[in-house]
C-alpha cells in the first residue's frame, strides 16, 4: 500500500509545538495528524498491551482510539488537552474490552507475546554485561508484571497511567470518572499490593 501521508517533508523538518500540530490536524491537515499518530501510537500501545496482555487487542485499541481522535478533533476545545484525551480514549477501550472478557472468561492472555517481551527484556538493561544483574532485573520485572495483572482493571489503569506514563492525577481522575483523591487512594492500594506481592515472591 502506498503512503501518501508524508507529502510535506520540508515542513516536517520544522519542529512544531504539539499545540500547533493539534490545531492543524483539527483543520484536517493529514501530515499534522500523522505526526500525532506517530507521537502517540507507541505510548498507547504500551498502555494497552500492559492492560490487556494481547498484542492484537492492543493494536485494535490504538487504531480505534486514534481513529476516534481524528473524528473528534474538530470538537476539541483546548489543543493542549489532546494527549490526555488520547489516553482517555485508549484507557476506556481497554476497560471495555476487559469487561467483555470477564463476561467470556475463556479468553486467555497471549503467552507467546509475554514470552517474547520477556526474552527481549532479558537482553536489554542498564546492567550491560553483568548476567547476574540482568537476571535479577528480569526476575523483578516479571514479578512486577505478574502482580500487575492480578490488580482490578481500574486500579491497574491508574497505576500504569501514573507510573509508566506520568499522567497527572487530574487527568487520570477525568479518565476514570473519579476524584483526584480516589486516584491517590487507588494508586496507594496498587503500590501496596504490588510491594507486598514482590516481597512474598522471593
Amino acid at each position: 500500500m502506498e503512503d501518501r501521508g508524508a507529502g510535506f517533508e520540508s515542513e516536517l523538518e520544522l519542529e512544531l509545538d504539539e499545540g500547533s500540530i493539534v490545531a492543524r490536524a483539527q483543520d484536517g491537515d493529514l501530515a499534522a495528524f500523522e505526526q500525532l499518530v506517530i507521537a502517540y501510537q507507541d505510548r498507547l500501545f504500551r498502555l494497552a498491551y500492559r492492560m490487556l496482555n494481547d498484542r492484537g487487542e492492543a493494536e485494535d485499541v490504538v487504531q480505534d482510539a486514534l481513529t476516534a481522535a481524528w473524528r473528534g478533533l474538530p470538537m476539541l476545545q483546548d489543543v493542549r488537552a489532546f494527549g490526555g484525551w488520547a489516553y482517555r480514549l485508549a484507557t476506556n477501550r481497554c476497560l471495555d474490552l476487559l469487561r467483555k472478557r470477564s463476561a467470556h472468561p475463556e479468553t486467555i492472555t497471549d503467552l507467546e507475546d509475554l514470552r517474547s517481551a520477556t526474552e527481549f527484556r532479558a537482553t536489554y538493561g542498564p546492567g550491560g554485561s553483568d548476567p547476574a544483574y540482568e537476571a535479577e532485573t528480569a526476575a523483578r520485572q516479571d514479578s512486577l508484571t505478574t502482580l500487575l495483572n492480578t490488580l482490578p482493571p481500574e486500579q491497574r489503569a491508574c497505576w500504569l497511567l501514573r507510573e509508566m506514563h506520568g499522567r497527572s492525577y487530574a487527568e487520570i481522575g477525568a479518565t476514570l470518572k473519579i476524584s483526584q483523591s480516589a486516584v491517590r487512594g487507588r494508586l496507594a492500594r496498587a503500590r501496596h499490593e504490588i510491594a507486598e506481592g514482590m516481597s512474598e515472591w522471593r
Binding site: E34, Q41, F45, V62, L144
Partner: peptide
C-alpha cells in the same frame, strides 16, 4: 524495590522494539 522495578520496567518497555504496533495500524488510521 517497587520503585526500582517500576523504573526498570518503564525503561525496558520504552526501548522494547517488540512493544510497538505494526505499521498496518498507522496505515489503517491514516
Amino acid at each position: 524495590k517497587l520503585t526500582e522495578a517500576t523504573r526498570s520496567l518503564r525503561e525496558s518497555d520504552l526501548h522494547n522494539t517488540s512493544l510497538k504496533p505494526r505499521l498496518s495500524v498507522k496505515n489503517a488510521i491514516m
